[in-house]
Computed example of a mutant assay.
Amino acid sequence: MPSASDSDRIRLIVLFGGISAEHDVSCTSATHLLAAANHEAYDLVPIGITRDGQWVRHDVALEALAGGRPIEGTLTPTGTPVNPLEIIGAEPDRVTVVLPLLHGPHGEDGTVQGMLELAGVPYVGSGVLGSAVCMDKAMAKTVTAQAGIPQGNWIAYYDGTGETPEQLAERAAAELTFPIFVKPANMGSSVGVSKVPDAAGLTMAIKDALQYDEVLVLESGITGREIEVAVLGDLEPEASVPGEIIPGADFYDYEDKYISGGAQLRIPADLPAEQIAEVRELAVRVFRTLRCSGLARIDFFYDAGTAERPGAGWLLNEPNTLPGFTPYSMYPKLWEATGVSYSDLIDRLVEIAIRRHARRAAIR
């Protein structure tokens, strides 16, 4: 049984791992978050999800946390197998909040969020609808286009409609501008993404992307700066200062993000005050349009143009409802530059989750 002091702490269940291709990114995020969270405010419960979907209580990490010791190395989903609903509802008399640091399908796409809604517990991040729409790049683009949010040219592809990869390549070459980006609609961290310079490689890129998803998005390459904004809140979301990605590779791919470290992050981005205000306002607009809650990183392109070529201004790239959460990830770094520390950011997200749950629970 928990002691009196334990009963005053919020029971914070941190979910990590998962069955998606972004499993390793999730484990890294969870390791840093558990180290930075206020141990006096939270009773931390690390729960891993293996690559084949088994939920496990990370006993070694729990022992380290209980003993006030740091967690050694990066977490991996090992430990005692548990039933998801039983572990979530194990202490009904205490405030329990779930923090799903699960990137990609079966974690960021509304599936886990739906389970948590049925379990009746507060959780960090967007709800079922916002998570599902933002995870699917094709649907997110459709919704934001309907709302009049500017973006580049794109087409969607649904496998099984009768159009072959070769036919899609021919259509994309006619409707879009090279280089063309080919993306699985329901992946993040640039997994499965290809930048195709000409028609010769388009069919192969499409076939590669279909290994990750049955829905694809193909986009015209945009000449512009890659600018990202972090949004935090619920009914009254706030936007951080913008940051800029300077890719170290041909584009900001998985290796550039997590392996080579060649990309540069410039925070805050060197932009005129008018453009900073505009992109922060636009980020909040995207957040609200897509029914986001808690946190999201909204990625844009800024095309200022040249004397010879008029620019398109701000163009939405994509939203991310559960961005990387290490102290070195863009989302926490943007908030640090805006005046919210990493540990305070965790507190804010937990508070938002509790308030949102209470507000929704009062609706009949």
Rank of each mutant, 00 (worst) to 15 (best):
E214R: 15
D344L: 07
I71V: 15
L315A: 01
I346P: 01
G224A: 07
R225Y: 06
L75F: 11
T80Y: 12
R355Q: 14
M330C: 01
E175F: 10
Q54T: 15
A61F: 06
I49E: 12
V286S: 00
E281D: 13
L235K: 14
E86S: 12
L290G: 04
K207M: 10
L129F: 06
E274D: 14
E72A: 15
T31D: 08
D347N: 15
V14Y: 01
L101C: 03
E244V: 14
F287M: 09
V182L: 12
G107C: 12
L176S: 04
P272S: 06
S131R: 13
E166Y: 08
D253W: 05
S341M: 06
N153C: 11
G224S: 14
E163K: 11
F16Q: 02
G110D: 13
P150W: 14
I10P: 00
I71L: 08
D256S: 11
A37R: 07
G188T: 09
A249M: 12
L315K: 01
D303K: 02
L129I: 07
G53P: 09
E175S: 06
E226C: 09
I71S: 00
L316A: 01
L12E: 03
L34E: 08
R359P: 00
T289F: 09
T338S: 15
M187K: 11
L202A: 05
L235C: 07
I222P: 00
T50E: 07
I87D: 00
T289H: 06
D198G: 07
A172Q: 04
S5M: 13
I13P: 00
T289P: 00
G160F: 10
G120W: 05
T142R: 15
E278W: 02
I267G: 06
F301E: 02
L295C: 04
G162A: 07
S329E: 11
P179M: 15
D299Y: 12
L290D: 02
A138S: 10
T76I: 13
I49A: 04
T80G: 01
T144R: 11
I206S: 03
F251D: 09
G120I: 02
F301Q: 07
V121M: 08
L118C: 10
P323Y: 09
R266V: 15
A263Q: 08
A337R: 06
I88F: 04
G110M: 14
R9A: 06
P165E: 13
K257V: 08
V284W: 05
A37H: 13
P70D: 08
R11D: 03
H58S: 09
D59I: 10
D93T: 11
M139H: 08
I180M: 04
I227S: 07
L345P: 02
V215S: 05
L271E: 03
T144S: 14
